[in-house]
Design a protein around this nucleic acid. Structure first.
Length: 142
DNA sequence: GCCAACGTTGGC
DNA sequence: GCCAACGTTGGC
């Protein structure tokens, strides 16, 4: 089980959109960056993913689960691009903002801070647990 | 809306 | 294979 973070602009596709898809979830399509794609290829079913709102909000708002491994991105015929499928698991009682993350020394090494343009990135277990607690989840395991 | 950082493209 | 030009992301 590994942990990840994926970004989306909420006016394009936000947490509410993801949740509206229900348990069947949907493909995390549209990624056109090799590093981000490689991270999705490294995911396995059951991995957990933070949903981050970029641009508007700039905060981690919820937790998703990987329900299908990387496969051809349905929004393109280009075989270079594939994506996993994810489903919404739980909304954070309190979103964790980028400002808060930057102000937290234990989270200073997150890719969110260090390579701010990477839209699919790994999250360390300690970081995951801490953010869950900061977000108001008393239990870490979903 | 601006722009810094970064990734990609394409000419050479 | 280098690198200049260009495009995109995302914080501010």
């Amino acid at each position: 089980m590994r942990y990840w973070l994926m970004k989306s602009e909420p006016d394009e596709f936000g947490w509410d959109h993801q949740q509206a898809l229900g348990p069947a979830g949907g493909a995390w399509s549209g990624v056109r960056n090799y590093q981000a794609r490689n991270n999705m290829r490294a995911m396995t079913v059951g991995d957990l993913v933070f949903f981050y709102h970029s641009n508007i909000g700039k905060e981690i708002v919820g937790i998703m689960r990987v329900i299908a491994p990387a496969a051809q991105d349905p929004t393109t015929d280009d075989p270079r691009w594939d994506c996993v499928s994810v489903t919404a698991v739980e909304k954070l009682p309190r979103p964790v903002t980028l400002d808060t993350i930057k102000a937290t020394p234990a989270l200073a090494d997150m890719a969110l801070v260090k390579s701010s343009r990477l839209s699919v990135q790994p999250v360390a277990t300690d970081e995951w647990n801490l953010i869950c607690r900061m977000g108001g989840l008393d239990r870490v395991q979903i």
